[in-house]
C-alpha cells in the first residue's frame, strides 16, 4: 500500500519538504553574516544588517504604505464582497453563476496587465490619485479571495438557521448581522488573511502605481536587491517571514488550524 508508512514515498517526500524549507533557512543564516556580501558559510555573527534596515527610508515608508494599502484593500473587499456573496447564495438571482465568474474574473487577468491597464485608465486617463489607484488595484486582487472563501462557507451554512431567526421575529437585515455574520466568522478571518498577505506581498500592481512619495515595501526591496548585494536583504526577508508567521499564528489563534489549511 502507498500509505504514510511506505518507505520510498516517505524518503522522497521528506527530501522535497527539505527542498521547500532549506532556501528559507539559508536566508535566515546569511542575515547574520559579518561579510558585506551574501555568502555561505558565514564568517561571524552580527545584527548590524538588521539595524541597517532602519537606515533605509524606503523600507520604513514602504512598510507603512504597504500596511495601510493592504488593510484598506482587504477590508473594502470584505465589505463589498460579502454582501454580493450573500445576494448570490441566498436570493434566487438569475445568472448567479455568471455573476460568480464575473467577480472571479480579475484572477484571469495577469497581475502585471491589471497593474498596467489600471495605471493607464485610472491614473493617466481618469486622473485618480496614485494612492487611490493602488488601493483599487489591490482591491481587485483581494475580491476573488473573498468571493471564493465566503461563498464556500455560505453554502456550507444551513440556510434554515437564518430562517429560524426570521421565524423568531428577526428581520432579514438584522438576521444578516446577528446570525449570518457570526456563523461565517472563520471564513471572514481566513479571507482577510489571504487578502492582506497577498496585497502586502504584491509586486506587479504596486510597481506601476508608484510615485515620488509613494513606494510599497516589496518593490523597495526589489529595487535595493538590484542595486546592492549585502545581507540587508536577508535581514528584511527574515523580518517579513516573521511577519508572515505572526499573521498565521494570529489567524490560527482566532479560528483554529483546521480553518486555515482547508
Amino acid at each position: 500500500m502507498l500509505d504514510r508508512k511506505n518507505k520510498t514515498l516517505t524518503v522522497i517526500s521528506i527530501i522535497i519538504l527539505a527542498l521547500i524549507m532549506l532556501p528559507l533557512i539559508l536566508v535566515v543564516i546569511t542575515s547574520f553574516n559579518t561579510q558585506s556580501s551574501i555568502s555561505l558559510p558565514i564568517t561571524g555573527f552580527t545584527l548590524s544588517w538588521y539595524s541597517n534596515i532602519f537606515q533605509q527610508p524606503d523600507f520604513i515608508s514602504g512598510f507603512e504604505s504597504s500596511l495601510i494599502v493592504a488593510l484598506i484593500a482587504s477590508i473594502s473587499a470584505l465589505v463589498i464582497g460579502i454582501p454580493a456573496v450573500y445576494a448570490l447564495t441566498r436570493y434566487n438571482i438569475h445568472h448567479a453563476a455568471w455573476f460568480q465568474s464575473f467577480f472571479l474574473s480579475p484572477t484571469l487577468i495577469p497581475e502585471i496587465v491589471i497593474g498596467f491597464a489600471l495605471y493607464q485608465a485610472a491614473v493617466i486617463t481618469m486622473r485618480i490619485p496614485v494612492f487611490i489607484g493602488l488601493i483599487v488595484g489591490h482591491f481587485l486582487l483581494c475580491l476573488p479571495y473573498v468571493i471564493r472563501l465566503i461563498t464556500a462557507s455560505m453554502l456550507l451554512m444551513d440556510s434554515h438557521i437564518e430562517e429560524a431567526g426570521w421565524i423568531c421575529g428577526c428581520s432579514r437585515k438584522k438576521g444578516f448581522f446577528l446570525i449570518v455574520l457570526p456563523n461565517i466568522k472563520a471564513s471572514i478571518i481566513a479571507a482577510f488573511m489571504m487578502c492582506f498577505i497577498n496585497s502586502f506581498n504584491n509586486i506587479p500592481v504596486s510597481l506601476f502605481m508608484s510615485g515620488p512619495s509613494l513606494t510599497m515595501l516589496p518593490p523597495s526591496i526589489l529595487n535595493y536587491l538590484q542595486n546592492n548585494y549585502d545581507p540587508t536583504v536577508s535581514a528584511i526577508s527574515v523580518l517579513l517571514m516573521i511577519f508572515t508567521a505572526l499573521m498565521m499564528f494570529l489567524v490560527e489563534k482566532a479560528i483554529g488550524i483546521k480553518n486555515i489549511t482547508e
Partner: peptide, 16 residues
C-alpha cells in the same frame, strides 16, 4: 508558510 511569504524573499533565496 512559503506560499504566504513574499515572492522577493523566495526568489532571493535562490540567488544565494
Amino acid at each position: 508558510f512559503p506560499m504566504l511569504t513574499n515572492a522577493v524573499v523566495r526568489n532571493f533565496a535562490w540567488i544565494i
